Amino acid sequence: MQIFGVDIGGSGIKGAPVDLERGDLADERYKALTPHPAAPEAVADTVKEVVDHFGWTGPVGVTFPGVVAGGTTIRTAANVDKNWIGIDARTLLGERLGGLPVTVLNDADAAGVAEMRFGAGRNRRGTVIMLTFGTGIGSALFMDGALVPNTELGHLELNGHDAEKRASSRAREDEDLSWERWARRVSKYLAHVEMLFSPELFVIGGGVSRKAHKFLPLLEGVEAEIVPAELQNNAGIVGAAMRAAMG
């Protein structure tokens, strides 16, 4: 069975059909740059571009980088245009896609759902936290495999700032931090999250997960197991498709 997944990020919007039996992309993903400003109408147009690239006519799952209340209404928009707040994203995207059935969920939640089913979190019980490091820091919290949605742990305070302003992948790039300096910041952040939630496992995802060998060995001061996401930066697409398959 194939369902289409779209992952809206602060820098790119990417999508592909997903083979839900294998938990992997059924075709090479297509990526377009996120418009700036990333206003609702412009982003919806880009989502349509991604879906139309494949001539897709079935259900579509879409991730969003913020809180999605009830699978419809956007409540936060840290890394996209603030005009998203209060928007019924499911209706907006459904109309832009010509009436195709659309499901919307938080981007890190989508990545986490995929990793718990097909990746690094499969068959893991207890408390598992997926963290995606990219333009910001997304989070997905699981207890015995059940998702606690919209946690937004990237906005915990770290040294007087939003954690994602200090420890995201974008912060590393913008400040030209070495892997060692960035790993120290990430270690402090993980230690803070661990203090609050005592997880057995951290799964590290987002685009930086492709380079896990450069920073995971440098992390310290955390008792929980830390592993890279197995689906890497495709986890959001897969998770979006999984949720769309549920209707």
Rank of each mutant, 00 (worst) to 15 (best):
D52F: 02
V102N: 08
A120P: 13
A171D: 04
A183R: 00
T57S: 13
T73R: 10
W56F: 09
G247K: 11
V227H: 09
K82D: 10
V203T: 02
E220D: 14
D162E: 14
R243L: 12
L93Y: 00
V18H: 00
A16K: 02
I204G: 01
A146Q: 15
L201C: 11
W179T: 09
L153G: 03
R122K: 13
L92W: 03
G207P: 10
K31D: 06
H213S: 12
T91R: 15
A163K: 06
V80G: 04
N123E: 15
E28R: 12
P101Y: 07
T72A: 09
L100H: 11
L147R: 05
R184V: 13
H192C: 03
A245C: 07
G5E: 06
F197M: 11
L105T: 04
K188W: 04
D176A: 11
G58S: 06
L147Q: 01
V203G: 03
V128A: 04
P17K: 01
V62E: 00
L153C: 05
E225M: 11
F202M: 11
V60N: 00
T132V: 08
G86R: 12
G9W: 04
F202V: 08
A42W: 05
L97V: 03
E157T: 12
A241P: 09
P65H: 02
G86L: 07
L105I: 08
V238R: 08
M1P: 14
L190S: 05
A171W: 03
E21V: 13
T63G: 10
V50I: 12
G160F: 00
R122H: 15
W84T: 02
A42T: 12
G66N: 04
L153H: 05
D88M: 06
V104T: 01
I137Q: 03
K82Q: 14
R210M: 13
V62W: 00
R172A: 05
V113P: 00
L218A: 11
N234A: 15
G121M: 07
D19I: 08
F133T: 02
E230D: 12
T57R: 06
R96S: 07
R124C: 09
K82R: 15
R243A: 10
L216A: 12
N106P: 04
T135I: 05
I237H: 06
D24L: 14
M143R: 13
I8Y: 00
G58T: 08
R210F: 09
D174S: 10
G5W: 01
A77H: 05
T132W: 08
G119M: 07
G136D: 03
L156V: 11
D162V: 08
G205C: 05
G70V: 11
I13R: 00
R181W: 00
V62H: 01
L105V: 08
E41F: 15
S168W: 11
P217C: 15
A224N: 10
E157W: 12
A69N: 10
E194I: 08
D27G: 07
L201W: 04
A26K: 03
E164H: 12
M116I: 09
E230C: 14
R181H: 10
G98E: 09
L158Y: 05
A110S: 15
I226T: 10
D88S: 07
I129H: 04
L141W: 15
E175I: 02
G126H: 09
R210A: 15
V222T: 13
P59Q: 02
G70S: 09
L218R: 09
L25W: 01
A77L: 11
M143H: 14
R170C: 01
A171G: 08
K211N: 14
K14M: 03
N150P: 14
